[in-house]
């Protein structure tokens, strides 16, 4: 479940300590953009110790490493992979980077006696090439569980203006959502950068959800509630799904192959959608069972 993934600067002990209790499904401890060059070593050390000693309250623990090309990425992987985070977020991911990182992590997993493949990868797609190559990037490692769209860098790479409305990233969102659905990994939407505009955030998240993104990154803890709400099934959705499943059970008892609800035929895709809603609602704790 990755409705919300919260970026936390890897050099801020107080924010790291409190981050698991803010409602996000995943915490991304950031060693890259949030950390200045002269703090890379100390942030790496801080993140490592935080992962070793803090209770993450069931949140997924993700570390955004520096890119391989920056020179810091290797040290990040070596220090952090040995304490088994849930996943690494890989900036400006390419197929080559992912293959190299996969191999490095496999070596560490063997050395440390971890189960092979236990550390997952999340490529950050933030170049035009990355958008076009996203299918191959995901296929390049079995560790990949999600893809995160980084729209700020992407629009800079394309030389286009980034807007609140987000029309300029419609294609990138659509492509990533479609490829992720095809390859059964999560598609995580880019952060909304105006941290005081909650209506704008809601609209942006709803737009992403409509296209098929399954969650959204947050750059401020106050964004989490809105994101979680948008990417959780609504009570109306849950009630509808319960009714579909009840009607299905009844039809099955009566030996009917097809059945209707509210005058509309319910077929396999609709039943699947209803089952997915119930499963998601259970995972979030919206319904018991």
């Amino acid at each position: 479940m990755r409705r919300s993934m919260l970026f936390i600067p890897g050099n801020n002990p107080s924010m790291i300590q409190n981050s698991p209790f803010l409602g996000a499904d995943s915490i991304i401890l950031d060693l890259e953009d949030a950390v200045s060059l002269d703090e890379k070593d100390s942030a790496r050390c801080l993140v490592r110790n935080a992962l070793l000693s803090l209770d993450f309250n069931g949140c997924e623990k993700v570390v955004r490493i520096n890119s391989i090309s920056s020179g810091f990425g290797y040290d990040d992987i070596d220090a952090i992979a040995r304490i088994k985070p849930d996943a690494f977020l890989i900036p400006k991911a390419t197929e080559d980077d992912i293959e190299e990182i996969d191999s490095l992590i496999s070596t560490i997993e063997r050395e440390e006696g971890f189960k092979l493949g236990c550390i997952k990868l999340i490529p950050l797609i933030e170049t035009a090439f990355g958008v076009e190559d996203v299918f191959n990037i995901i296929k390049s490692s079995k560790r990949i569980v999600a893809v995160l769209l980084g729209a700020e860098d992407l629009t800079a790479d394309m030389g286009i203006k980034r807007t609140k409305e987000g029309e300029e990233i419609f294609y990138a969102r659509s492509r990533i959502a479609s490829v992720c659905a095809a390859l059964k990994v999560d598609a995580i939407d880019t952060p909304f950068t105006d941290v005081n505009d909650f209506e704008g955030l809601r609209k942006d998240a709803e737009k992403a959800k409509l296209i098929g993104m399954s969650g959204k990154a947050a750059i401020n803890p106050r964004q989490i509630d809105v994101i979680n709400e948008v990417f959780s099934p609504s009570f109306d959705d849950i009630n509808w799904a319960k009714r579909v499943i009840e009607a299905y059970e009844k039809a099955k008892m009566e030996g009917k192959g097809v059945f209707a609800l509210d005058g509309k035929m319910v077929d396999a895709p609709i039943l699947l959608r209803a089952k997915n809603i119930i499963e998601k609602a259970k995972a979030i704790g919206l319904i018991k069972g």
Binding site: N18, F21, L22, G23, N220, P221, R222, D225
Partner: peptide
């Protein structure tokens, strides 16, 4: 408060 911890407690 705008402090996320304060807001979490309040919620």
């Amino acid at each position: 408060t705008r402090d996320p911890i304060g807001l979490r407690i309040a919620k």
